[in-house]
């Protein structure tokens, strides 16, 4: 067990190098000249050639590719992602609060999604094939096929403007979480709830259930056992939900003016603020990777059968 965990954790190291290298290569493939972007972003109305040369040396952009990569990697390890082209502030300082907000939203979403999908999964598995099961499935199916920005905008319009119940956008109190979380988690729920429902149904046919039932074990207890066994497959998926949602909040953040990573990234795309995009890719890919490993370990702990494989 311990070996497995250590082995799994050690895979982070090569992954880190690959991820960082790809993030670095991407920025260097970009067709726009970083120096020009920087000068332009600072509102210098007239950019002269001397100014460009000067800035280039100042930023160390005149050095060869590999040297720049190693320097950059060294900085990244020390949590220095460079300076934003546009605001001239350290990228880390800009990304960290945004990361916090995105994390909050992703966590809120994950919690709501997990609770909702477990609840609906159990209900639907119990009443499998009946109206409530079919209804819930169809409803969630359609909701998850609706563009989130569309529901989001309609929801703002209805709940905030027409009913004036909730704030339209931004962060602040818990009420700000309601709309984005509702819109997002209901979409994700469609996927997770079906997973739980299906694995519950599969477990219902297992011998231990038949045996328990025939022994006259109470239905409540039987369901509990079924649930415990069927949740295992969902756990790994839930571990991936957090990074998945962090990456998936982009549109929602823009609709609800949530000051998170997605919004920062989109505005950086418009401003060609490459260091921020780079840091965004690096951070999300890394957390994706970490949660993936975390998910594997949790699954292994829960299910000893898988450990040997």
């Amino acid at each position: 067990m311990r070996n497995y965990i250590i082995r799994r954790i050690l895979t982070i190291i090569p992954m880190f190098f690959i991820i960082s290298f790809i993030s670095f290569v991407l920025i260097n493939l970009s067709p726009s000249d970083p120096v020009e972007i920087i000068l332009r972003a600072n509102g210098v109305p007239v950019v002269t050639e001397e100014l460009i040369e000067e800035t280039k040396i100042e930023l160390g952009l005149d050095q060869p590719f590999l040297v720049r990569y190693v320097n950059w990697l060294n900085d990244v390890i020390h949590l220095d992602f460079g300076k934003s082209y546009v605001t001239q502030q350290p990228v880390f300082k800009m990304i960290s609060p945004a990361f916090g907000y995105t994390m909050q939203l992703a966590l809120a979403n994950t919690v709501v999604t997990i609770m909702l999908s477990i609840f609906l999964g159990i209900i639907c598995a119990q009443f499998e094939g009946r109206m409530i099961d079919r209804g819930t499935r169809s409803f969630l199916f359609i909701i998850s096929a609706m563009p989130a920005f569309w529901i989001g905008t309609l929801a703002i319009w209805f709940f905030s403007v027409k009913l004036n119940l909730l704030p339209t956008s931004g962060v602040g109190s818990w009420t700000n979480f309601v709309l984005p979380t509702m819109v997002m988690s209901i979409g994700y729920c469609g996927f997770y709830f079906r997973m739980i429902r299906n694995s519950m149904l599969e477990n219902m046919n297992e011998n231990y259930v038949v045996y328990a039932r025939s022994c006259g074990v109470k239905e409540k207890v039987v369901v509990k056992h079924i649930f415990r066994n069927s949740i295992q497959t969902a756990v790994a998926a839930f571990c991936m939900a957090i990074p998945g949602m962090m990456a998936g909040t982009v549109v929602i953040e823009n609709v609800f003016a949530w000051p998170g990573l997605g919004r920062l990234c989109v505005s950086s795309i418009f401003n060609r603020d490459l260091p921020i995009i780079q840091a965004y890719v690096l951070i999300l890919a890394l957390s994706y990777c970490l949660f993936n490993i975390f998910g594997d370990i949790v699954t292994a702990v829960l299910n000893p059968k898988l450990r040997k494989a």
Partner: peptide, 12 residues
Amino acid sequence: PSEVMTLAIVGM
């Protein structure tokens, strides 16, 4: 994550 890479490619 594919969403992130899509954004990255569009950004670059």
